[in-house]
Write a protein that binds this DNA or RNA. Structure first.
Lengths: 125, 125
DNA sequence: CAGTATCCCCAGCGATACTG
DNA sequence: CAGTATCGCTGGGGATACTG
């Protein structure tokens, strides 16, 4: 017990790296749209409300780089590019689904707690 | 099918709100340290490597506001303040654990894919 | 010990314009 | 259609100093 044991909250632990990877505004959402099969660039853009072209490109490139998504170019005019989850990407969907499930079943409680906290008179005893 | 159906990737969907909530640099890590029971402020600070005092306070306040964490002050000198997960917070641990499990079992593949992508000669045909 | 209060920087992101 | 390039802002967050 010299506390040299692995600290899961240390810098560079896998969890932290994953968080760096998916903890941005768009990654999880984009992965979600690819759940039901390959999608074209603009299909994803339409599905993920509010995303800019720049961020969609950037995030897709990062996902491709990390082996979570494939990019397939069809040589035709106008261009057609399809994005699809790799097996690795599909495997990541599982925990993400759990998270979405939690969100749909519990976020209301979170929001309610937030309202209560905001309305509570400043308790200065 | 007027596409007024609920779009899970739209603004203000629960998933998106959860992502806003936990998709920052510290929240998930802090919740993780509270997994095994209540912790004092500086205990958390030590466990979560690299966090600043400001961000720890700020994140804990947000967690408390959202009903995920309780804050208990013991009237003594020097001060002792303990943070603990609420039932709601504990329930969130479940999906987060799945995520951590994925991280420990798959992040190596992600990192390997990244290296491969970076070393690959620019394929310009 | 457990915080507040300030200052300040930079990277994440949006907006816009252009292209094969 | 599916991008690239550039500009510019803003707010997330670090560093530091101070306090009950």
């Amino acid at each position: 017990m010299t506390s040299l044991d692995w600290n899961p909250y240390a810098r560079n632990c896998p969890t932290r790296e994953l968080l760096n990877r998916i903890g941005d505004r768009w990654t999880v959402l984009i992965i979600g749209t690819l759940n039901d099969g390959p999608r074209r660039f603009n299909e994803i853009a339409r599905a993920v409300e509010g995303i800019s072209q720049k961020m969609l490109t950037q995030t897709l490139r990062a996902l491709e780089r990390d082996g979570l998504v494939t990019r397939t170019i069809y040589a035709q005019i106008p261009p057609k590019v399809e994005y699809a989850l790799t097996d690795l990407g599909v495997s990541l969907r599982e925990p993400l689904k759990e998270l979405e499930l939690w969100a749909t079943t519990h976020m209301e409680q979170v929001l309610a707690a937030r309202l209560r906290a905001d309305q509570a008179p400043e308790q200065e005893q």
